[in-house]
Structure formats: structure tokens, C-alpha cells
Simulated assay, not measured.
Amino acid sequence: MHTAEHDWITTPITADILRGALDLERTPHGLLPHRLPARARAQCADGQLAMAESQPSGVRLAFRTGATAVELDTLPTKRVYVGVPPRPDGVYDLLVDGRLTRQAHVTGGNTLTIDMATGTAEHRPGPAGTVRFTGLPEGVKNVEIWLPHNETTELVALRTDAPVEPIPDRGRRVWLHHGSSISHGSDAASPSTTWPALAASLGGVELINLGLGGGALLDPFTARALRDTPADLISLKLGINLVNSDLMRLRAFAPAVHGFLDTIRDGHPITPLLVVSPILCPIHEDTPGPSAPDFAALSGGRLLFRATGDPAERAGGKLTLTVIRDELARIVRQRAADDPNLHHLDGRDLYGQDDAAELPLPDRLHPDAATHRLIGERFAGRAFTTGGPFADHTA
């Protein structure tokens, strides 16, 4: 697959040059990064979660090299939704010394065809491809290749025209974040411009992103993954998936949040821990889930979501975003009396009513690229600056 005009050096892809993954699975083709450990994956048979955690949001190859040319062979799995215009190929972002320098795609790969009307999916195998970056600056530099945040990616081979070594420890703090598809990066332009990636860059921290599309459901195995992952800062963005999956009622919600926090605190007793409530989502502010595709729009080739619950069902304990925000604020207030490192942020401070008027959610659930930037900048401004819960007191 590689071109012949360079004297290529093949470097094994190992954990010391890969960041943001909690597990590496050896496959017949190479390595598949996972964002949940094998033990967690074994405890849930949900296909949506399996797809989301294998999509490498925040996962990047990071190395130091004098190379001016880099090739990476990968086997992507591309999603096709029946009745919806084709999705663009996943984007690979190349950063040199922290600056976005190149972007590229890999063609080919496996295809996962999803029919939202029937709930079925068909997997078809395809060939691996190569992403190629040439004309990089001379001299030794830090290079990062951010993998497509929304495209399952098996890593096959890494080639460069100069030796590669791991980037020395820069002493940067590790930020471990968990959230929904919005944190995963749905509808962001590229992997280094999801809102958590942007916030991490502005905050000068190393990101581990456990944003899982459709998977922020207070699952105990996710809490244990957070508990067992070394981190200096932890944030949880909770709420929207519990509404749009209609997974639980109010009676179960508060104890589940407490249990989730208890588990994390078992491994991180004094780590700064920020609980973030949902950003504004007009369809679910006062209307319960579940969410469903708007099939009238889908027949016209547009993907829109709608809330299928009834506001009157709140009296029976169905969850809405308004209910969840109130509960999260109450829970954090209650716990903070004994846990001074526990903090709360109202998600509407990141994206609220005025923002929705100016930058509406294109499919009624997910922010676009401009809104990812807005949320990332606001999160960094509230969390990482002086007086924020993630302020660096050693700086």
C-alpha cells in the first residue's frame, strides 16, 4: 500500500505511542482501540454501545520524529443509514507540535448499513486503506494523528521516513471525561475539533474521552472503567441519553447517580470531579423520551429526531431534561458538604436558549461544528481558568 519514493521505517503500533484508548484488541488485521475495557464490554450486549466505544473519539497516535512523511494503514468501518444522504468519510487530523497541520481520509473499509426504520444492521467487509501525510516541517517535532471520532478504525501499520519515539512525559494533567454523543463528537467537523478535544487543547491537558454515543446511561461498568483509569481531573456530562432512551424513572435516577459517583470516588477519592447537566435541547426540555427519527423528514432525505413522550407522563416519574438538571444540582449540593472536590455546572451555561436561537441543533439533538467550538471554549473558560474546578494551582 505504501509509496516507493521514501525509505520507509515501519514502527510497531503499541500503547506507548497511542493515547486515549483504554484497551487494545488484536484483530486479524492489526489493533482495534477500545474506549471501554474488555470486562466492561462483556457486561453489555447492546450493539449501539459496542459501535460507540469502538469509535476512537479522542484516540490518537502521538510520537516524536524528524519525519517529513507519514503513512498509516487502517481498516475503517463506515456507517451508511438507509434513506439518508451518505455520510462523509471519517477525518484524520495531523497535529504538529499541537497545531492542526493536515487533514485526510481513508477510502474503502468495511460498511455497516443501518436501517433506522427496522432497527437492523448489515456488516460488509472491505479493504484497508492508507492515510498519507507528506511535506511535513523539517526537524524533530511532536506529531499526533487523531483518528476519526465517528468511524471504528483498526490500525494496521505505521510508516515514516525517519525514526519514531514516544513523546516524553510533558507533565500535563490527564482529563477523563464521560458523556453522550455530544461529548463523543457527533456532527463535529473533525476529531481534534470535538468540544472535549477543543477544551482539552485550551486547558493544556491530555484528554481521555469516554463520550459514548447513546451510552451515557449510568452503567455500573462505565463507572468502574472511570474508577480504574488514572486521571487528574474527571467530568461527567449526564442526562440526555437517559431521556432519549427512556431508560429509567425518577425513582431509579438519583440512587443511580449516587452509585455512579460512589464508584468513581472509590478510585479517585479527592480528584476534582465536575458533574455537568444537559445542554439545552428544546424537544426534551419538558417532554420525556424516547427520541425517535422523524420518519416524515427521513422520507425526504433529512435526519431529524422528535420526542415521543407526553409531558403529562412526568407525574409518573418519566424524566425530562428540566427534571434531570434539578436533580443533578440537588445531588451535587448534598454530596459537596462532605466532598469539597465535587462540582456542578449547568449545561445551559455551555449552550442555552439564546444560543439555540442563533445556532439551532440541526437534527434537534446534536450540535454542529460551530456549536462544538462554542461549547469547548465555554467549558474551558468555566473549568480550567482561575477559580474553575480544574484550575491548575501548580501553574
Rank of each mutant, 00 (worst) to 15 (best):
residue 1 M to W: 12
residue 5 E to G: 09
residue 7 D to G: 10
residue 12 P to F: 03
residue 19 R to Y: 02
residue 22 L to E: 08
residue 27 T to F: 01
residue 34 H to S: 14
residue 38 A to P: 09
residue 39 R to H: 13
residue 40 A to H: 12
residue 41 R to A: 09
residue 41 R to M: 12
residue 42 A to Q: 09
residue 42 A to N: 15
residue 46 D to L: 15
residue 47 G to A: 13
residue 48 Q to F: 13
residue 49 L to G: 10
residue 54 S to Y: 03
residue 56 P to R: 02
residue 61 L to V: 00
residue 62 A to Q: 09
residue 71 E to N: 03
residue 78 K to M: 07
residue 88 P to A: 00
residue 89 D to P: 09
residue 90 G to A: 01
residue 90 G to C: 01
residue 91 V to Q: 04
residue 94 L to F: 02
residue 100 L to Y: 07
residue 105 H to E: 06
residue 106 V to M: 00
residue 108 G to K: 04
residue 109 G to D: 02
residue 109 G to C: 00
residue 127 P to W: 01
residue 128 A to T: 05
residue 133 F to P: 00
residue 137 P to V: 06
residue 138 E to C: 08
residue 140 V to Y: 01
residue 143 V to T: 04
residue 144 E to I: 01
residue 145 I to A: 01
residue 152 T to G: 05
residue 153 T to D: 02
residue 153 T to R: 00
residue 158 L to N: 01
residue 161 D to W: 05
residue 167 I to H: 01
residue 167 I to E: 06
residue 171 G to A: 08
residue 173 R to K: 15
residue 182 I to L: 05
residue 186 S to I: 13
residue 189 A to H: 07
residue 196 P to W: 11
residue 197 A to K: 06
residue 197 A to W: 07
residue 204 G to V: 08
residue 206 E to I: 07
residue 208 I to N: 05
residue 210 L to P: 15
residue 211 G to P: 12
residue 213 G to K: 06
residue 214 G to A: 06
residue 216 A to I: 04
residue 229 T to C: 12
residue 230 P to R: 07
residue 230 P to L: 12
residue 232 D to F: 07
residue 234 I to Y: 08
residue 235 S to N: 06
residue 236 L to D: 13
residue 238 L to Q: 11
residue 238 L to K: 08
residue 239 G to A: 13
residue 241 N to R: 04
residue 241 N to G: 03
residue 244 N to H: 11
residue 257 V to E: 07
residue 257 V to Q: 10
residue 270 I to W: 10
residue 276 V to F: 08
residue 287 T to D: 03
residue 287 T to V: 15
residue 287 T to E: 05
residue 289 G to K: 00
residue 296 A to D: 15
residue 297 A to H: 05
residue 304 L to Q: 06
residue 306 R to A: 10
residue 308 T to D: 01
residue 308 T to H: 02
residue 308 T to Y: 00
residue 309 G to S: 00
residue 313 E to L: 04
residue 314 R to G: 10
residue 314 R to W: 04
residue 316 G to R: 15
residue 317 G to W: 01
residue 319 L to Y: 02
residue 326 D to F: 11
residue 326 D to R: 15
residue 329 A to H: 14
residue 330 R to Y: 14
residue 333 R to Q: 14
residue 338 D to R: 12
residue 338 D to K: 14
residue 340 P to A: 05
residue 340 P to V: 03
residue 349 D to V: 10
residue 350 L to N: 14
residue 353 Q to M: 12
residue 353 Q to A: 15
residue 354 D to I: 08
residue 354 D to Q: 14
residue 355 D to P: 13
residue 356 A to I: 12
residue 356 A to L: 14
residue 357 A to D: 13
residue 358 E to G: 09
residue 361 L to S: 00
residue 362 P to W: 00
residue 366 H to K: 04
residue 366 H to C: 03
residue 376 G to Y: 11
residue 380 A to T: 10
residue 382 R to D: 08
residue 383 A to K: 08
residue 385 T to I: 11
residue 386 T to K: 11
residue 387 G to T: 09
residue 387 G to W: 09
residue 388 G to L: 05
residue 390 F to Q: 08
residue 392 D to Y: 03
residue 392 D to W: 05
residue 393 H to Q: 13
